[in-house]
Simulated scan of single mutants.
Amino acid sequence: MSDAIAEAVAEALGVGAVSCDAVGGGCVAEASRVGLADGRRVFAKRLPDAGAGVLEAEADGLRELGEVSARLGAGDRIATPGVLHAGANLLVLEWLELGGPRVGDATWGRRLAAFHRASAAGSHAGYGADQDRPLGATPQDNRRLHDWPTFWRDRRLVPMLDALGAAGRGGGLVDRGRRLAERIPEILGGADETPCLLHGDLWSSNLGSVGGEPVWFDPSPYTGSREAEFGMTRMFGGFGPAFEAAYREAWPLPDPDGFDRRVGVYELHHHLNHLLLFGEGYRAGCERRMARLLRG
């Protein structure tokens, strides 16, 4: 048992810990399943070197996702783990016993569309969020703007290029990225700019099922164009054609002819982030996608 994590959880919840086992928790945090003296099990994420407010911001993001989902009928919801404690270095969540029947791609597509549509029904103060939330270990500037292409250029693409340059991983890719940045208003001009709450890091390792019902976790939420969500779903695959087909059927997207190019911009962002975090294995993919966007 990891004494440090078990003791931190026990202190945070006021209940003794009787077991602590390491589990997968992403690339930047130490994650554990902790058994409590009262019979519960909880998920604990420990980030000793977390920046100010990182884990609290993750907790708030989970609550935001949960609040939107709660407005939906049972057949449209995507569940999130409940937040039990959020502190500077420790996040404790309800334990989800993942497994059971797999949630099909069409179900994920329909429920994501329902979630986006429900979130769009609220009032919004612009694209972004009230808190900065990292994407993996990469800081993200969520200060709000009222124009979507400007938000993507100034809060996503350009800061990513700056980070790559500062890390010595840019080279000609950064120069080409700055040319692409000049064209972002043109490329994203046909996007659906309805402000929606996005999960922000939507790929298969951040999704699961409990008893055949979909759940998601480890988000980086902000308000944006719903099309940006597809950048990550396309990056690693894992979703078949039924996913996007069901989404479009539930809530059609405008300007379908320009959709793939716009999603290419969003997918490039995640490839650039992986180049920044994990190194040269992602460079070739970044180069191909950058060249395709500049040619288009």
Results as ranks from 00 to 15, higher is better:
Met1Ala: 15
Val9Ala: 08
Ala10Asp: 00
Glu11Ile: 12
Glu11Asn: 12
Asp21Phe: 11
Val23Met: 14
Glu30Leu: 15
Glu30Met: 13
Val34Phe: 10
Gly35Trp: 04
Asp38Met: 01
Lys45Asn: 02
Arg46Asp: 08
Ala50Glu: 01
Ala59Leu: 02
Gly61Trp: 04
Arg63Ser: 10
Gly66His: 07
Glu67Ser: 10
Ser69Thr: 07
Ser69Glu: 04
Ala70Phe: 01
Gly73Glu: 10
Asp76Thr: 07
His85Arg: 05
Gly87Phe: 04
Leu93Gln: 03
Glu97Trp: 12
Arg102Ile: 05
Thr107Trp: 01
Gly109Lys: 11
Gly109Leu: 11
Gly109Trp: 12
Arg110Met: 11
Arg110Asn: 12
Leu112Lys: 06
Ala114Ile: 10
Gly122Pro: 06
Ala125Asn: 13
Tyr127Arg: 09
Asp130Gly: 14
Pro134Glu: 06
Gly136Tyr: 00
Leu145Asn: 04
Pro149Asn: 03
Arg155Glu: 07
Val158Pro: 00
Leu161Gln: 07
Ala163Asn: 00
Gly168Ile: 00
Gly168Tyr: 02
Val174Glu: 12
Arg179Leu: 12
Ala181Pro: 10
Ile187Phe: 10
Pro195Ala: 10
Pro195His: 14
Cys196Arg: 08
Leu197Trp: 05
His199Ile: 13
Ser204Gly: 12
Ser205Thr: 14
Glu213Cys: 07
Val215Lys: 00
Val215Cys: 12
Phe217Asp: 02
Asp218Trp: 08
Pro219Asn: 07
Glu229Asn: 08
Glu229Val: 04
Phe230Asn: 09
Gly231Ser: 05
Gly231Trp: 07
Gly231Tyr: 05
Met232Trp: 09
Pro241Gln: 09
Ala246Trp: 03
Trp251Leu: 14
Pro252Cys: 10
Asp257Thr: 02
Asp257Asn: 08
Gly258Ser: 04
Gly264Asp: 09
Val265Glu: 08
His271Trp: 15
Gly279Leu: 01
Gly279Glu: 06
Gly285Tyr: 09
Glu287Asp: 12
Arg288Cys: 08
Ala291Met: 08
Leu293Tyr: 09
Arg295Cys: 15
Gly296His: 12
